[in-house]
Design a protein around this nucleic acid. Structure first.
Lengths: 236, 236
DNA sequence: CCGCATCCGTTTCGATACTG
DNA sequence: CAGTATCGAAACGGATGCGG
């Protein structure tokens, strides 16, 4: 019978929430599994496909551990489907802010995708949400459509007094941005590529208010330098 | 000669900021090293002491990688000191929000410290800052003093319209909270322990406005369930 | 097919000993 | 004090096989 396999569990042996969090999330692939499940339930094989390089054994162990800690729950689909899906439980969904901060920070180290780099269209909204401006941003709404082999994604970026919000629903955008290059979108959002250049050189098509497109980068911001406001680093 | 040591570099081969971030931060000890440096420059030996279990070789490799990526910089002290310290560079300081979110999330998995668990007084302000309420919180200021073998720490928790702030400076607190048990403070802050019980059972001493102490837990909140506001998990 | 276990070569980790 | 060298143990990646 399927008696519980070991499910190894590393411990730092520290009384610290950060240590505890990284004990749970720090192993290879774990946070990427969470990222996949943040966009909805997935089957074992779906996860393998989105995560080239995970061995099935590691994926099994990771899912078992996430289930054990109630970050993830396994759910059986209706009989005809004859399959089960993994979905985030409450504690797993609570990881969204963590993931968004990591995205926000990680963007500065993102490099142009190489030939062998994998990409899923679903990752784009996450990337945009991560660098969404937190303070007041232009009151414009831009719809972004990304075409990809797996069908692509669409999302809407809307600025406002309380910051920029990224949603899946498209409603009355001022401008529409269409491309098949995730790099172009990210470069545009981070200001590394001027909108005009993106249209000219990249495969970027635009419709609607051109002024909204010009101001598109203002909807975003990179991570601030974090002036150590809490922990008063007493730099000699 | 000191030819470049390998400094292994794992890659997920994905065009995703989260993957990039975890490539950099996901190895064992890395984020805990960052945590230590968030409270100021440290020497190699200081880090080893605060991180029981790191082997010197792993610490060397981690620091080399962090330096390579400009998260950390090595600085030579004035001649008489005859030593070097490691300190966070800009990209390292920018990790504070990431660390705070991880703390906020990790608190729910924190267990009472076992006999062998290590603890540094410096970690307490980080823990409190992680669970500081982001919305309006009571306009009270509580000074927290933690006594410990290594000297202890003091910090102040202040509520206000824009949320709770944790600082190292103590100024005009409404109440003062003194203890030698970090667990008692965290249990108090998370509402797992009633203030009255903490005073009675735990080694918790209080001065000043008792009402402020009663409302102390209101200054904090745990991570919300994260309703997936961005990535619309289409749960079938 | 799908979920998962097993085997195996390689990488990474942890503990100890050693060097400038 | 600040690392380097070494070595056994554990974790990882890839392939293969088994039961539903």
């Amino acid at each position: 019978m399927g008696h519980t396999p070991p499910v190894p569990e590393f411990r730092y042996a520290q009384f610290c929430p950060l240590a505890r969090a990284t004990e749970i999330l720090g192993e290879r692939w774990t946070l990427l599994i969470v990222r996949e499940l943040l966009t909805g339930p997935k089957r074992f094989a779906d996860l393998r496909r989105a995560l080239p390089g995970v061995s099935s054994s590691v994926l099994t162990v990771r899912l078992a551990r996430l289930e054990e800690l109630d970050l993830v729950a396994q759910r059986a689909l209706r009989p005809p489907a004859a399959s089960t899906v993994y979905e985030l439980a409450e504690a797993g969904r609570a990881l969204l802010p963590v993931v968004l901060e990591l995205v926000r920070w990680g963007v500065r180290f993102l490099q142009p995708p190489g030939e062998r780099d994998h990409f899923e269209a679903d990752w784009l909204p996450l990337g945009l949400a991560g660098i969404a401006r937190r303070g007041p941003s232009p009151s414009i709404a831009v719809a972004v459509h990304l075409a990809a082999a797996d069908g692509g994604v669409s999302c809407q970026v809307r600025g406002g007094r309380r910051g920029t919000v990224v949603t899946r629903e498209i409603a009355r955008p001022d401008a529409t941005l269409e491309t098949d290059s995730p790099l172009a979108v990210m470069a545009l959002a981070t200001g590394m590529l001027a909108p005009a250049d993106a249209v000219r050189s990249g495969g970027l098509r635009v419709e609607g208010d051109l002024d909204a497109l010009t101001r598109f980068p203002e909807l975003f911001e990179l991570a601030p330098s974090g002036a150590g406001h809490v922990l008063g680093a007493d730099i000699d």
